Amino acid sequence: MISVIVPVYNVERYLEECLNSIQQQSYTDIEVILVNDGSTDHSKIICERYCEEDSRFYLLNQTNQGQSSARNVGVAASKGEFIAFVDSDDIIQKNYLEKLMQYMTEEVDIVESNFTVSKKDFLVENSKETTILFEGNSNEAVKIFPNHVLSVNPVTKLYRREIVESLPYPEGLIFEDIYCGIGMLKYIRKIIKIDYIGYYYRQHQTSTMHQDFSTKKLDVFTVCDKLVELYSDREELLPYIGSFLVHKATMHYQNDIKRGNPYAKFYNQKLAEYVNLTKKNPELARNTRFIKLYNICPKYYNSLIFPIYHFLWKLKNGVKEVEIEE
């Protein structure tokens, strides 16, 4: 059985669409754990209706404690051998769980699909043959992470239960996906990533990455440092984690830091730490684009070097800003 965990908080506008997509799955041996995280709109009433109509749906209510707590509570209450997370404003394809289960063999612990932030692309029927984009063990998965083949998202994946239980989501922090997304790879035997868009990820202006700066955004370094500590006993992998964190620190600086921000120096300090971590593997450092850019002029990397590079890269590749759904 697959346990589908759905944290719910003030999503009455999108909740029915999400729950319908779960209810209509072609793979039917499921239980759906809805964790109402203190919603103040009609989300709880909507959840109760689905539980009344479908015996596979269960509702847990708690005071508002955040998405990490809701996920952990849902996992603790679930009974399935496999676990999938679905955010309550997102949608999954009708054959999403069935497709992931096809690749969940005895030695596989995580199967990951692609996702899209374009609802138009999601709704287009995808009839092409599914292929494997990546298949590897724990070490291979961590080493490929800087290439962005795999995602840190809790969603878009089917997990063997023991993997999720091995690393609960840190509560009281944002950017917890960075910690668990890579941290869980420490405990797997094999992960498979398939070329299949099974998940629609809805973006909002209210999402963390689109909000104005607050000191809460410094949590990104707390979870990054926790990740480095988690892998401290596997030193050969730390440079690869460092390479990924250089990318994260760079992009968070670009999104968060405006002129005069008092935390700019701190961002640069953490970036330097992650750069040094990557340099413990000289070959990796030489072949990492962000490290090469950083070495041009570390002092002005965030304020000048990277913004120019990123502008030219977007111009060359015709990249436009992602449309955000209000």
Rank of each mutant, 00 (worst) to 15 (best):
D212Q: 09
K314Y: 05
C18N: 10
F175S: 08
P307D: 10
N268R: 13
D89M: 02
I305F: 01
S43L: 06
Y169Q: 13
Y169K: 09
L293C: 02
Q102N: 13
I46C: 13
R234S: 15
S151T: 13
E107H: 14
L123Q: 12
L15T: 00
K94H: 13
I110K: 05
I291R: 05
E229W: 06
Q65N: 15
L15F: 08
I2W: 09
N72K: 02
Q254V: 06
A285K: 01
R202F: 09
P298G: 04
W313Q: 04
N72W: 09
V73H: 07
P307L: 00
Y231A: 12
I197D: 12
K186R: 00
N139W: 06
S68W: 11
F57T: 06
S68R: 03
T250S: 02
Q62D: 13
K190N: 14
R234K: 15
L304V: 12
E162C: 09
F85W: 03
K94N: 08
A76N: 00
F306Q: 05
S243Y: 09
Q254Y: 02
Y159D: 05
E235W: 00
D54Y: 15
L218S: 11
L158K: 03
N137D: 14
V111K: 02
I188S: 09
I324R: 10
T215P: 10
E107I: 08
K119Q: 10
I296G: 05
I33K: 11
V223G: 02
Q269P: 09
F290Q: 08
S243T: 12
N295F: 04
P168Y: 00
E112D: 01
V142C: 06
I5Y: 06
G66I: 00
M251N: 07
V220C: 04
K94S: 07
S207C: 11
N61K: 14
F311R: 04
K299C: 06
E140P: 03
N276Q: 15
T116I: 02
E98I: 08
N10V: 12
Y274I: 05
D121G: 03
A77P: 02
V108H: 09
K94T: 08
K44M: 15
Y96T: 03
A264K: 00
E98Y: 04
H204I: 06
I33S: 01
T156L: 11
N64V: 14
P154M: 01
V75D: 12
D121V: 12
L173P: 05
H148V: 07
V275C: 03
T105A: 13
V228H: 11
P7G: 05
V155R: 01
H252D: 14
N255T: 01
I110Y: 06
S138N: 13
E162P: 08
H252N: 14
Y96F: 13
I188W: 04
L237A: 00
P146N: 11
I241E: 08
Q67T: 15
Y196H: 01
S118M: 02
S127C: 07
L34G: 07
S21Q: 01
F85N: 09
N114F: 12
P168G: 13
K299W: 03
L59W: 00
K217L: 02
F290C: 10
I178P: 10
A249P: 07
V11D: 15
E162Y: 01
E235D: 14
Q102P: 04
I30T: 14
E323Q: 01
G198H: 03
